[in-house]
Structure formats: structure tokens, C-alpha cells
């Protein structure tokens, strides 16, 4: 009962945080320079690890699926297998998990240390809403950057798959690309960009909430950072199922 009460209370606090972050956009100041700074930190800062993740995921996909496809004589469809897996599922989920680890932890630790060093209290005492100044720009930056990072992961995953297919299995590049083009539908592309928007909201809200609720000094910062990453990762995976189901209903069962 106590756990349930705690969960409902936390859910209520998170809902209020989302609401305040969204209404923060209605009025001035909107902290545009801060939004751009966060976009740079989150987007450009995460690009290298996302490219690496995408590239090697694409590579390992072809490494694992090519022998099976070859067994059934379907090696020419290797590009389709890599592209659809990446664009529909692995691209959005892996990118979100990497960003949850890198950015979610950073947001939670930064806000947490601001709480324990009374900087959040100072901000409020100086007449600024921490939600508008700190939470809204981070959530907006995440919502904008995560879909772009996902696209980067998808593209580099397909490139990685192509290189592995050519170098290890000797598959012709044009055959691989034709298979990619034939396999990917517009619904895949739209779905692959919609999912990261939900994931970005989850990562941003949980990281900010955990950071702002930090208690107990520097030990508390460590705790809130860990729980932010763990919870954001779990919720991303859970949300992936429900968003996939929702997109299946919207676009039809054949594609998603």
C-alpha cells in the first residue's frame, strides 16, 4: 500500500512537472539561448557515441542474419532486414538508451548538485522559476535532438551493415542498397521518428524530476542519478511496446 501511495505521489509530481514545463513555453522569458545550448550539449555532444552505436549495431545485425538468410537463399534481402530492424526498433530504442545513460545522468546530476548546493533555492529567491529556466529547455532540446540522433543511428547502422556485408560476405553494395530501398516504407520512417519524441519526453521528465527531488547531499546526487538512468531506460523499453502497438493501430499491422 505504501509503495502504491509512493508511486501515485511520484506520478502526480511528474505530471505537475510536465504541465509546468509546458506552460512555461507560453510566457516570456522563453530562454531560447539556453534551449540552443542544451541542443548543442545533447545533440552534438551525443553524436559520436550514437554514430558508433548505430554503425556497429548495423554491422552485428548483418553478421548474425546473413548466414541464416543465405541458408534460405535470401541473401539479397540482407539490406531489408538490417534497415527495417534499425528504423523500426533498434535505432530509436538504442539511441534512447544511450541518451538516457549519457544525457539523463548528466541532467539529473547537474540539477541534483544544484539542489544540494542551494542553487535552486537561490534561483527561486531571485525570482526565477527553475522549471522554466532549467526543465523546459532540457525537455525541448531532447524532443528536438533525439529524433535527429535516431536518424543518424539509422543511417550509420545501414552504412555499417553494408560495409560488413561487402567485406565479410562479399555482398554487392548496389544489391544491398536496393534491398534497403525496397524494404523501408514511409510508415517505417514516420514511426521511427515519432517513437524518439515519446522517449525524449520520458528521459527528460524523469531526469529532471529525479534531479530536482535530490535529498541527502552528494550521496543523494549519486542515488538520484542512478535511479534516473535506470527508470528512464526501463520506461523507454516499456513505452516502446505501447508506442509500437499504437503505431500498428494507426498505420496497420503489415508495416509495424
Amino acid at each position: 500500500m505504501n509503495l502504491l501511495k509512493k508511486f501515485i505521489l511520484e506520478l502526480q509530481e511528474i505530471s505537475f512537472l510536465v504541465w509546468r514545463a509546458l506552460i512555461g513555453l507560453r510566457k516570456k522569458p522563453r530562454y531560447l539561448p539556453e534551449i540552443i545550448r542544451q541542443m548543442d550539449l545533447i545533440g552534438v555532444g551525443s553524436l559520436a557515441i550514437i554514430i558508433l552505436t548505430g554503425f556497429f549495431t548495423g554491422g552485428v545485425l548483418i553478421l548474425q542474419t546473413y548466414p541464416t538468410l543465405a541458408y534460405y537463399g535470401g541473401q539479397s534481402e540482407a539490406g531489408r532486414a538490417v534497415a527495417t530492424s534499425l528504423i523500426r526498433e533498434l535505432g530509436p530504442v538504442l539511441t534512447a538508451l544511450m541518451v538516457a545513460g549519457r544525457v539523463g545522468s548528466a541532467i539529473s546530476a547537474e540539477l541534483g548538485s544544484m539542489v544540494v548546493s542551494q542553487q535552486i533555492d537561490a534561483m527561486r529567491a531571485l525570482g526565477t522559476s527553475p522549471t522554466r529556466k532549467l526543465v523546459t529547455p532540457r525537455i525541448i532540446a531532447l524532443i528536438t535532438m533525439l529524433p535527429l540522433l535516431t536518424v543518424a543511428a539509422d543511417v550509420f547502422g545501414i552504412i555499417g551493415g553494408g560495409i560488413v556485408a561487402k567485406q565479410i560476405f562479399g555482398l554487392d553494395n548496389s544489391l544491398y542498397l536496393t534491398s534497403v530501398r525496397n524494404g523501408v516504407t514511409i510508415q517505417d520512417l514516420i514511426g521511427g521518428v515519432i517513437k524518439p519524441i515519446f522517449f525524449a519526453l520520458i528521459i527528460g521528465v524523469i531526469a529532471c524530476h529525479k534531479g530536482l527531488k535530490t535529498e541527502g547531499g552528494t550521496v543523494g546526487v549519486g542515488k538520484s542519478t542512478t535511479s534516473a538512468v535506470v527508470l528512464a531506460s526501463i520506461y523507454v523499453i516499456i513505452a516502446d511496446f505501447f508506442v509500437s502497438k499504437l503505431l500498428t493501430v494507426i498505420f496497420g499491422t503489415s508495416t509495424l
Partner: peptide, 19 residues
Amino acid sequence: LMRIRRKIGMVFQEGALFD
């Protein structure tokens, strides 16, 4: 409260400067 806080200056224990 934001309006009231403009009348008040607060000096925190450790300064609470924005790092």
C-alpha cells in the same frame, strides 16, 4: 511570491553561486 521575492535579497550559507 515572485513579486514579493523582488523585495527580498537572500544571502545563502555557502553563497549558493551559480557554478
